[in-house]
Design a protein around this nucleic acid. Structure first.
Lengths: 340, 340
DNA sequence: AGCTCGGGTGGAAATGATTCCATTCTTGCG
DNA sequence: CGCAAGAATGGAATCATTTCCACCCGAGCT
């Protein structure tokens, strides 16, 4: 119960026989401090096992050495990997990560943002629910500290960003399916309110244009990032008459993938047999799925590391910039020639 | 760039024409404060849009309204769900969650613990890598604030705990397999250094004892929580001569499940056909696996909520106690009669 | 030699809140 | 009617640190 009164900078000063201000300077490697003083102070600090109080430091300096991150969903392994990468890079730099969860609720998102501002985080990482939300934009614009967006368009925001080149991977995947003879390729994705969906649709469109083949608009199905939506859409499309029914499907996002797979098994279809399937976002459990799904991969941990790096760069006064990481189409077992 | 000088308690005091101390009392609903004063202060605070500075508050009071949580692995959806539950309950109570990741490295775990202590979290949630680690125990014992363990034995630690009744689910599963005629049932789990593994082994053993059937020690294979270990073990066991080879497998944990499934598909086996399979920890993607695996389920989010509740209870001065949540065996498609 | 410049140091203010203590003002009771 | 008790308030100390400012002193210049 009895809190054992931590050792303060004052104790170190007394021990070393110098002033508190000198201790502070010595420890924070201020230019104007003699080697002798530095040695004395370090010795005393060492003996007493002194560690500065982050609370007091931040009260005075205004900086918390903490970086905030608002994610949509903790349980999504994609974010798990990103967070992992962020934390790793941040800890190396002596920063702490404060992650928080919007649960996909815009109101809660704004709420979490204001919390982080109150807590005076030195920078903000954000992968917002919707790029169109005015409330979120306002909350972000209210930040006086650096902001880094994860896989979101900076738009008017003066923010750094780490982006994925979704278009690349999806373009390659679509082109491959076209080469395999597919013409009716469905694109099932989440909300166009965020960049990944738009980019995937762009890659899809570009592949068709490059091949000089017209696109069947009815087979582009953006909507919501939920398994339920993806499942319903897939079931609807696969129920179309043979002449309109897609022979291949490209699915974007983790939840979408799950929904599409639910639909397949509901209809008793095996991916790759009648209908080819390419999914985005590689995941650990895809390794144990049979058949092995063709996939558009990306390095989520690297995204996290890059985001952390950008944030630290901005804190040091750098100008906001954008980093784009590649995605890659990886053929496995469910990209098959169209069955005639 | 120019930080817009936040409004302080002093500004509110001036605005309301009262003393700072009165503002503090009014806002923290101190008993000795007149309704008139309270009204004045609230009005002024409202007009100025005052929010107290958490840093300053914690410097003075010693409490941060923050709770720390050290997990082994962010990307594991099991922890994702727990964190989700914790955060939900904590936010409702006006607390903030500070999650951090040990990546399964004991040194890093100790490191993260000391970080949280420095940051003066009001309570600590911990799901340690090993219950046997002296360094971790010491670091935890060094906490003067309440500690709640997640699915770990408190042992000598004076800590609250949220436990899962793993034994129950595994006992039911094993009993069912025995009833289906299985005698050689393998138990593939992680390290016995943590409670879940020990409890699962206990459930397994009890089921055999209840049936009066001797256990083949060679089929109990605890080891490490990694897909690689589980995979190798599974392949080794399934390569045994027919008379010794297990006819059913119970797998514990997420990584273990993945490893076992890898082994199955490597060997070209379908779970449930030749070898029955029950896995622990229900996961979203198990819904899309075919065949649908029989599973021992549990409510991870509820664990999180309970843990948060316990922590808040301890902060208020309650005595450490233990909460146990059930697990349940759910038959799906891979608990089959032994094939003769 | 005297003066300036600047490196090195100590003292004290400031950061934004809580809380103790003293003070004032009622009010009730003898 | 006077006095004590207690409610309500203000002032100041406190939390642990950073940073501004003043000071001292030695070196270099005129």
């Amino acid at each position: 119960m009895e809190e054992p009164r931590a050792v303060t900078i004052h104790d170190v000063a007394t021990r070393a026989g110098v002033a508190v201000s000198s201790v502070s300077r010595a420890l924070s490697s201020h230019p104007d401090v003699s080697p002798a003083m530095k040695a004395k102070v370090f010795a005393a600090a060492e003996e007493l096992g002194y560690t500065p109080d982050p609370g007091a430091q931040s009260l005075r300096s205004g900086f918390t050495r903490t970086i905030g991150f608002v994610v949509r969903d903790f349980a999504n392994p994609f974010f798990g990997d990103i967070i992992h990468g962020v934390e790793e890079a941040l800890n190396d730099a002596g920063y702490t990560l404060l992650v928080t969860n919007s649960s996909g609720d815009p109101g809660r998102e704004v709420d979490r943002l204001t919390l982080l501002r109150q807590r005076k985080v030195d920078a903000l990482l954000l992968s917002s629910i919707s790029e169109a939300s005015t409330r979120t934009s306002k909350a972000v614009a209210g930040f006086t500290r650096p902001v880094v967006l994860i896989d979101r368009d900076p738009r008017k925001l003066k923010a750094g960003s780490v982006l994925l080149d979704h278009a690349q991977g999806v373009r390659d995947a679509t082109a491959d399916l076209i080469a395999l003879g597919h013409r009716r390729i469905a694109m099932i994705t989440g909300s166009t309110a965020i960049r990944p969906t738009r980019e995937r649709l762009r890659g899809y469109t570009e592949a068709f244009e490059a091949a000089g083949i017209p696109i069947d608009e009815a087979l582009q199905a953006p909507g919501a990032f939920s398994a339920a939506f993806a499942r319903e859409t897939t079931e609807r499309l696969l129920a179309l008459p043979p002449a309109e029914r897609p022979t291949a499907i490209v699915a974007g996002g983790v939840q979408t993938t799950i929904g599409v797979l639910e639909a397949f098994s509901e209809l008793g279809l095996r991916p790759g047999d009648d209908v080819s399937l390419v999914v985005c976002d590689d995941l650990p459990w895809l390794r144990v799925m049979r058949p092995r799904l063709s996939v558009v991969t990306r390095d989520a941990e690297e995204m996290g590391r890059q985001a952390a790096g950008l944030a630290l760069e901005l804190i040091k006064g750098g100008e906001p910039r954008s980093v784009t990481l590649p995605t890659a189409y990886e053929v496995r077992e469910t990209s098959r020639p169209v069955s005639v």
